[in-house]
Design a protein around this nucleic acid. Structure first.
Lengths: 143, 143
DNA sequence: GGCATCCCCAGCGATGTAGTTGGAAATACG
DNA sequence: CGTATTTCCAACTACATCGCTGGGGATGCC
């Protein structure tokens, strides 16, 4: 798959929070984990990363939980992925110095650029819309 | 990086072989490895994969080596990558059944589709042209 | 104070990646 | 024929990462 479990779990959680954002919605780790079938102690770590990345805000104590730090339209998926994938600073390997390696490096650059374009061009709101549409058509079939 | 070392090494080797293909060129593992600074016993495995994938042909015994099984224009990079990355059949994870996971899955699909489009749309000849152009401009600077 | 909830960080098993090694089979060449 | 050269096959190691679990600690509502 294109994403690690970390990233998938984080994005799914953000989607859940985005869905109730207009109501200023707050969800607890355990709630999200139960609904999505994710180990809660693991999910905790992703939400912590997202908080450190200023994407989530947390509320401690009883009746606490997490909520989006910004409206979904202002959260780019690229940002989320960087935050969850751990950056892996200078993931680029020490480029070997031959014309052949440079050409391959160029191809890799184009691949990552294409990926980045999609991730930058998609906001959490876009995914939320997609989700709502999906749920909508499920209801249609149901009737 | 977008590629594993395996894939990079394999592609670099293919580039070297493509460069001398019009002369029906043959190179030995040790030659390529030395020129590119790759451990030769490791590179051996990549070239074996490429042979099994019908991308290379091998000649055994003294004065043996490897050569392209087809002209570079007929070798798509997508094919090479599949061959080297080991396929990892059904790399796709067991998709969780929630609207949120489905939406994320959709995004992953678009990412992989974009990647695939580039890899399908690039032939070994394309990379070879890029290499030659790069070498050409190096000479320019040299003068 | 007590309980619910987030916070931090350490560790663990499975898997994958990069590379090494040992030897068997084919074949050109003298 | 014999030997050196080269590919072929398959196992093995070292290390990192991934997905996940666990133990406490901090905070804050009641």
């Amino acid at each position: 798959m294109a994403f690690s479990a970390k990233t998938e779990y984080g994005l799914v959680s953000l989607l859940e929070l985005a869905a109730i954002h207009p109501q200023g919605g707050v969800l607890q780790v355990a709630e999200i984990a139960a609904r999505q079938g994710i180990p809660d102690r693991y999910l905790e770590q992703m939400l912590t990363s997202l908080r450190r990345g200023q994407i989530l805000r947390s509320i401690r104590g009883p009746r606490g939980g997490y909520q989006l730090a910004r409206p979904p339209a202002e959260i780019r998926i690229a940002e989320v992925v960087v935050c969850l994938e751990g950056e892996l600073a200078s993931r680029g390997t020490a480029a070997r110095q031959s014309a052949e390696f440079e050409v391959i490096g160029g191809l890799e650059g184009r691949l990552e650029q294409a990926r980045q374009a999609i991730l930058e061009g998609t906001s959490l709101q876009d995914l939320l819309d997609e989700r709502d549409q999906r749920l909508q058509s499920q209801v249609m079939y149901f009737i």
